[in-house]
């Protein structure tokens, strides 16, 4: 997975100043990061921790107070790096007087894409994000979720190698959220690099290879998600169809080896899984009252 370095920041700092140039907020303090090609990298942190600032510095929308941000080996303020970048902002900042087709056509024309290729790509993207029926409607008539979808489509119009997603799942319903996560994983499988920032930890956990946790502008943790989340002194055993005798036997084995039993219980599924299974079921058998028929889905693997 690890390949060429796509993003590199060296002691990247950002201080917001007031009108008179006096420092107001230290939004980012000496951030050192290196993101390789093909990674899904998550920036985590509470509100105001510097996630969005980092993304904007990487995009050249903000200028660093100190340090340097390199994207594809070029300075982040170099416009030509944008040829290979796709960006989905926190809220889809799009022209509300354009319709979906016009939006993608406009952003597509800002790249060096042949006209017929662009036309085909617009069509594919609109279908991919599920806006085929709303393609001629102006964005001001769109719901928030639809706006996010068209926002994602515009971020992918140039088939970017690096995709920066700012709160990608905000405003999406659970289906949209799942689709977004699936999309991120699919893009990774195509060898794209993805940097996302979010405060929805579950989303990050589901898709990210590596994460950085920021707090008050400082890097607090950096590493692989699986490594970071592994609780080294706890072992989890999951099994199906254990009868009470078997469970007792396991307890005894643990005791014999001086282990400490934390819990033996039936796992619950996540609400997300429950919701998705109900919706799937409802779509398969329309008209039926879904709640009564809902069964707990298999726990997430």
């Amino acid at each position: 997975m690890a390949g060429d370095t796509v993003i590199e920041t060296r002691a990247l700092s950002k201080i917001y100043r007031d009108f008179w140039g006096r420092p107001k907020v230290r939004a980012l303090k000496a951030l050192d990061l290196e993101i390789k090609q093909g990674e899904v990298f998550g920036l985590l942190g509470p509100n105001g921790s510097g996630k969005t600032t980092t993304i904007k510095l990487l995009l050249g929308l903000l200028f660093p107070t100190d340090g340097q941000a390199l994207v594809f080996g070029k300075d982040a303020t170099d416009v030509s790096k944008n040829e290979r970048i796709g960006y989905l902002p926190e809220e889809s900042y799009l022209y509300r007087f354009l319709n979906a087709e016009e939006t993608l056509d406009f952003y597509g024309r800002l790249f060096d894409i042949r006209h017929d290729v662009l036309k085909q790509r617009i069509d594919d993207l609109i279908k991919m994000v599920g806006l085929d029926r709303a393609r001629k409607r102006q964005l001001k008539e769109y719901s928030k979720g639809m706006t996010r979808r068209i926002g994602l489509a515009q971020a992918l119009i140039n088939e970017p190698d690096l995709i920066l997603l700012d709160e990608p799942t905000s405003g999406l319903d659970p289906i949209g959220t799942r689709e977004m996560k699936d999309m991120i994983l699919r893009l990774r499988s195509e060898g794209k690099t993805i940097v996302m920032c979010s405060h929805l930890l579950a989303d990050v956990q589901d898709v990210c290879d590596r994460i950085a946790i920021l707090h008050q502008g400082e890097l607090k943790e950096l590493g692989r998600v699986d490594t970071l989340l592994t609780v080294a002194d706890v072992t989890q055993i999951r099994a199906k169809r254990l009868n009470p005798d078997c469970q007792n036997e396991i307890r005894q084995v643990i005791e014999r080896h001086h282990g400490e039993l934390v819990s033996i219980e039936h796992p619950t599924t996540t609400l997300e899984e429950l919701f998705l299974s109900i919706v799937r079921d409802s779509e398969a058998r329309p008209g039926r009252r879904a709640v009564a028929a809902a069964e707990p889905a298999a726990p997430p693997s």
Partner: peptide, 14 residues
Amino acid sequence: KSKTIHTVMTKPVR
């Protein structure tokens, strides 16, 4: 104001 400029400026637009 509407921040649409963010989306434009992150394309290879001078």
